[in-house]
Design a protein around this nucleic acid. Structure first.
Lengths: 109, 109
DNA sequence: TTAATAAGCAACCTAAAGGTTGCTAGTTTA
DNA sequence: TAAACTAGCAACCTTTAGGTTGCTTATTAA
């Protein structure tokens, strides 16, 4: 089983929350960050943030490393990239569809 | 207020379900499709499918047109495209981040 | 003009999401 | 070594998601 393969729906659902998108934004800057550090600035509890991090982790969007008493998280960019490809694929299928429609109309005319 | 702007989290959350991704796939082929038509082939009820369609609609991913007694749905590709851009933006921020890290390490050496 | 079809509405159920508080156990650091 | 800090675990609560069934209304076709 490929460790990098998570279902598109799982990844999108992990991305489908404002708090989690904000966490991802914060993880984009600088070095890996701890749960406590990431909790600061939100007005919900550390445990709530930890649950959001679990979602991101399960979807393969972040990766934890234990360092001393801290759990440090960093972005796993591959999942973002493959979700992006998934959406590009939809767009291109739609383009093909529109092109087919157009030829169909021209043939009728 | 821009009719085309839906929050990224709302769109991702609409994409975060296997049934809804499957509905999108079906809507990519051919002409606009009715609720009943789209319900066929799933083993959940028409009402359940209708709820999923509501989600997609609220996120701006599909657009309904009433024709006679039927409600026909078609893809609204703009939301897909802008979600795609959102993910590309994340990827590029991550690239910049990695590049910065690299220069930092080289400067130290 | 009656029967079949498409779809809306409402009530209901169960599981999961998103949050809380309280407590415990390992690390650091003063 | 005692105090402070990081984080895990468990129990609980409330709202929402995803699904069901039953019924009504509008439109289309026989």
């Amino acid at each position: 089983m490929d460790i990098n393969s998570t279902s598109p729906a799982l990844v999108f659902s992990a991305l489908g929350d404002d708090t989690r998108l904000e966490l991802i934004q914060r993880l984009l800057e600088g070095t890996p960050k701890s749960v406590s550090y990431l909790s600061r600035g939100f007005n919900i509890s550390r445990q709530a943030i930890r649950k959001h991090l679990h979602h991101l982790e399960k979807a393969g969007l972040i990766r934890p490393t234990k360092v001393g008493r801290e759990q440090l998280f960093q972005i796993q960019i591959e999942q973002i990239e493959s979700s992006c490809k998934y959406l590009e694929e939809i767009s291109s299928q739609w383009d093909i569809h529109l092109k087919n429609l157009k030829t169909l109309l021209e043939d009728k005319a």
